[in-house]
Design a binder for these strands. Structure first.
Lengths: 181, 181
DNA sequence: GTCAGATACTAGGACATCCATCTAAATTTG
DNA sequence: CAAATTTAGATGGATGTCCTAGTATCTGAC
């Protein structure tokens, strides 16, 4: 920390790159309209905004998780198991709840297992299936990671609580119309 | 198309996976609150919603671009060049406008160049720098890809125009506070 | 009961993103 | 003007996501 102009706990979100002169998405929106694509310009801006917001939040989350040696994808698997009643779920269920491809689950579980955070067990009733079980180490890491994320990312996202609620509601409509639930 | 219950041009967004019984993000939000993390539960839901919205839109965009043999990352490079006055920009500028790492630009330009959609030229005034120039083929593809995306994704995102405007405005605040512009 | 079709998971490949590092060239400093 | 610093790009490595098979196993129909 250098300048003491801010309060003691005034945590900022420092830009990784120098600030641009203009909002690149607003600029693209102008170009779209100027080319006669006005009917699509708002949708383009919304989609692009979401792409960038994803990038911003993912970078913050990964920065917090890096010292704990997990990634967001693996953290999500840990939390799903953490909330499950028996601390274990079949691969297939993990994929459908997290809305990712089976192969992504295989990948994440491979690495979590190598780190001794989860364990693969045969499914007692279905020999095709594999149960993934949280180890005590995995449970502990899930708790530490959640504490860190809550503190450093989720409690203050840089948006007003009103904006946060709006986003959850609006994107909930999107997810529903996309067939998520 | 099977059931004729919808209008002739009623384009749907078919889910890739079976619909879940409950909204997984709402479920996570409940778990967060139940574990005493209420102060972070809304932020968690917002961040997770953005992650999923990104995934949904990226999948739609990539599906439209696939027949044209480009990806969204490469499409963005093409459009940046398309809008530039001289149809050419230094690598560095591309990275800062698209807000991605230099290495991502190198990667995208490598592939675009292999497809003869752009060309690398020495920068006339700075021998460290490389100019990336749009070829006629690249310009044509940019136009065809934009027409397809406007038609199949951006004009109808599955959100109301009110919701689209809200998203752009709210995430604009986020991008600003993150130091984008 | 047997066999076709569906389901669960793994393997290998294509892409994109970031990080750390390296080389070359421009800019700043003393 | 020479040395230190900064900047532009490229490389190699790690991750994550999806896609296309391929294998093993379960289900259901005849």
């Amino acid at each position: 920390m250098s300048a003491a102009s801010n309060g003691p706990a005034a945590k900022q979100h420092p830009p990784a790159a120098p600030r641009l002169a203009a909002d690149p998405i607003a600029e693209a929106h102008r170009q779209w309209s100027a080319h006669g694509w006005g009917g699509a310009s708002d949708g383009m801006a919304a989609v692009t905004s979401i792409m960038r917001a994803h990038q911003i939040f993912l970078a913050r989350v990964e920065a917090v998780l890096r010292p704990l040696q997990v990634t967001f994808a693996r953290y999500e698997v840990l939390m799903l198991l953490y909330f499950s009643k028996r601390g274990a779920l079949p691969m297939r269920i993990i994929g459908s709840r997290l809305q990712v491809h089976q192969t992504s689950v295989t990948n994440a579980v491979d690495r979590l297992e190598a780190a001794r955070l989860v364990r693969r067990l045969p499914h007692p009733a279905d020999r095709r299936a594999t149960l993934v079980e949280l180890t005590p180490a995995g449970r502990g890491l899930a708790e530490r990671a959640t504490a860190a994320l809550n503190e450093e990312v989720f409690t203050d996202t840089g948006l007003s609580s009103r904006a946060v609620a709006d986003i959850v509601r609006t994107l909930g409509q999107l997810r529903r119309s996309a067939g998520d639930f």
